[in-house]
């Protein structure tokens, strides 16, 4: 369901015209690949292994807390892929926190993501599902985050990623969510194992957080993924579209990327289509996305994303409680 917009048809048509110019003019005078400023902090929750808070002007506020609990493997001999995927549980809670639209008064959204893995809930737009998919996608050489969750033989970490969205729009912004999850994961530390690796008993850990192990080893790749929304209007492609721009766009994608090396090159981990308003046009006007435009959109993401993700990563490392 496309996000509701308070724009009227003349406004939409003006925006469409302005965005399809060559060179295009965005309403806030950004360049097509410029991102809006955001406020972010991490490692501020004492009870969490990792946490982050990101605020974007339009998309609202998002707080992510990551907790890890030890869990026994289902079977000691051979753990299936499906069981391993249960080691990460993502849950997204959307709370309106304020009026979400005209006439709705309270706008306290329902709690969603209760079936986090299945994403049955409409409220979060299936956010929990694609967030988890992005995480589970493997890296170069068959790397998987699930390997980092193995503690010793028969034991593993169960990672709970709880996302709290305080957002004014009914549709959660993928950029906001994934930036917050990215920062939280980047700053997650797990306690260091003190018992031997190959023993079956309950593992014991050191109380000293100074020697704790980061979930994502610094300076190793790939880093946690990030999802970037991109829209196309006419022949132009725009990154970090505002809600109004999404309403006027003809095609939209959300590309999930992860940094694959220090130079800022990214691997594409996933691509999803995003509902756009198509400038409020009629049903018959919907033409679908042409292949050239699709390639353009994905390339724009891959080119610019590197810098963005690196920048977010650097902020995270500056703020973490230890280097």
């Amino acid at each position: 369901m496309p996000p509701p917009t308070p724009l009227s048809p003349p406004e939409l048509s003006y925006l469409y015209a302005s965005l399809s110019l060559s060179p295009p003019i965005r309403l806030d005078l950004r360049t097509p690949t410029q991102f809006r400023p955001l406020v972010a902090e991490c490692s501020f929750l004492p009870h969490c292994n990792g946490s982050a808070r990101v605020c974007m002007s339009e998309a609202g506020e998002c707080i992510v807390g990551i907790k890890a609990e030890i869990e026994k493997d289902a079977t000691t001999k051979y753990v299936t892929v499906i069981e391993r995927e249960k080691w990460i549980e993502v849950s997204v809670e959307v709370a309106g926190g304020g009026a979400s639209g005209p006439g709705s008064g309270m706008g306290i959204g329902g709690i969603s993501g209760a079936g986090g893995a299945t994403g049955r809930d409409e409220g979060d737009g299936g956010a929990a599902v694609w967030l988890k998919e992005g995480l589970l996608a493997g890296g170069a050489g068959g790397w998987s985050i699930l390997d980092r969750l193995v503690i010793s033989s028969g034991w593993h970490w169960k990672l709970y990623i709880d996302v709290l969205l305080l957002t004014p729009t009914s549709h959660p912004s993928p950029l906001l969510l994934s930036t917050a999850v990215n920062m939280a994961l980047d700053s997650t530390y797990l306690p260091k194992l003190t018992s031997p690796h190959d023993v079956d008993d309950i593992p014991t850990f050191s109380d000293d957080w100074a020697i704790s192990v980061p979930l994502y080893e610094p300076k190793t790749f790939p880093r946690p993924p990030m999802s970037l929304p991109v829209v196309a209007v006419g022949d132009n492609v725009f990154l970090d579209p505002s809600v109004a721009e999404v309403a006027a766009a003809e095609a939209g994608l959300v590309v999930t990327l992860s940094l694959s090396d220090a130079q800022g090159n990214c691997d594409i981990v996933g691509v999803r289509s995003m509902e756009v308003g198509r400038g409020g046009g009629k049903e018959g006007d919907r033409k679908g996305i042409n292949r050239k435009l699709l390639r353009q959109m994905v390339n724009a993401c891959v080119k610019e994303a590197g810098e963005v993700i690196k920048g977010v990563g650097e902020t995270t490392h500056q703020q973490m409680f230890r280097a």
């Binding site: 009870h47 969490c48 990551i66 907790k67 809670e93 306290i108 709970y160 709880d162």
Partner: peptide, 15 residues
């Protein structure tokens, strides 16, 4: 009044 406890707010994770 509506109160939401974040799942990560306590020492154990409880939804």
């Amino acid at each position: 009044c509506e109160v939401y406890f974040a799942a990560f707010s306590g020492t154990d994770r409880i939804k």
